[in-house]
Design a protein around this nucleic acid. Structure first.
Lengths: 201, 201
DNA sequence: TCGTTATTTGAACGAGCGTCCAAGAACGCG
DNA sequence: CGCGTTCTTGGACGCTCGTTCAAATAACGA
């Protein structure tokens, strides 16, 4: 059987996620990852391949985790509309405030790495698409239940919210507590208000 | 007095902007800048200081240029509402399509560098704030002229559009022609319609 | 107990990084 | 024509990068 592993790969990935998230791909060195994960580089290379492969594994794990979180957030509250609102609020709070200037790893990666690495690009792009695909049915349901105005096309609104959330995470990186993020969040929440309902059927 | 400079600093900055824009700060080496600008490193160091200072100068120039462009785009068309629409369309087209996956230098920098460099952060943050400050009066005027619904708060809408545009430039980096960007753009345009917007698609 | 096998360890490697600087080259002026 | 001044040129420096690998280590079955 040989000598047993002294670390859990997923736990290492969680640590690596933290580093890539707060510092970025290029700015994190393998030495940094060594100290950050507590695993010496030889073992990192044996377990994951190289720096890029470790990053890809971290990114995929982060994407999976965030996909799960989306479902949780959307199912919060009494109805689909409350879930949407909750999702937006959490995402908004997540990128304002002290220590919250690292944004979202997917957005950071889209900006820094995606154009130069097809595999990375695919992971990030699919994540964004999945997010939109998760938001859209919630919007449709909310509209069907008369909780959300039908003024807006559900598909477009879903895409809009995806783009908006990524924008918040980017703009939020320029200030510990960004007024722009807060205002845009308030605006987005106002979009979800059922202010001009036609006769519900 | 002395040997004359063989290059124009602003022209060099324009070249440097291109490189930082398409490749990112950390991924561009001083050697790359040497070949990209056509100026040997010794002269670059003499003229600008070091890599970070050159980046900062490029970033400030980019920010200035984009502030000018905003005013131009907003004044396009017959009225403030047409200017806003034009601005959104141009920004949307600018980050979809082949060869358009480099987004916006300000957004890229917000994601990659801003959290780790206060001076950079200030430049980017102020740029975003200026953009919002340029959009808001256009929105107010459009509302006063009855061209744009008063349903939305002008200040919040301005912030919303800033964040949205940054989001488009980030999401657009994951695909040459992003359906998400196109949809969110269509949605944003529908927000600018005066009364009950039709459900396009 | 010993041999097998898988993992850990950290020294070592070449390449490339950002930066510096001494020498040469091109001007204006006396 | 020198002379002073400024900019250019490209080699060199020290360092850190990502990566490799042989030796040391630890668990297993026999």
């Amino acid at each position: 059987m040989g000598r047993p592993k002294t670390f859990d790969e997923d736990a290492v990935l969680d640590r690596a996620i933290e580093q890539f998230w707060t510092t970025g791909y290029h700015a994190v060195s393998v030495r940094d990852l060594e100290t950050g994960t507590g695993v010496l580089k030889g073992s990192l290379y044996a377990a994951f391949g190289d720096k890029r492969a470790l990053f890809l594994a971290s990114l995929r794990r982060y994407a999976d985790q965030s996909a799960v979180q989306i479902r949780e957030l959307l199912s919060h509250g009494a109805n689909p509309r409350a879930g949407l609102e909750h999702y937006l609020r959490v995402r908004g709070k997540g990128c304002t405030g002290p220590g919250r200037t690292r944004g979202c790893l997917l957005a950071n990666t889209a900006a820094e790495v995606a154009p130069h690495d097809p595999e990375v690009r695919a992971v990030v792009g699919q994540s964004f698409a999945k997010l939109a695909a998760a938001l859209e049915p919630a919007i449709v349901e909310a509209q069907e239940q008369g909780l959300l105005s039908r003024r807006h096309d559900a598909h477009e609104l879903a895409a809009h919210l995806v783009v908006l959330v990524q924008g918040m995470s980017v703009v939020g990186k320029t200030e510990p507590d960004s007024a722009l993020v807060r205002s845009s969040l308030r605006f987005a929440l106002s979009l979800l208000e059922n202010d001009a309902p036609e006769k519900s059927r």
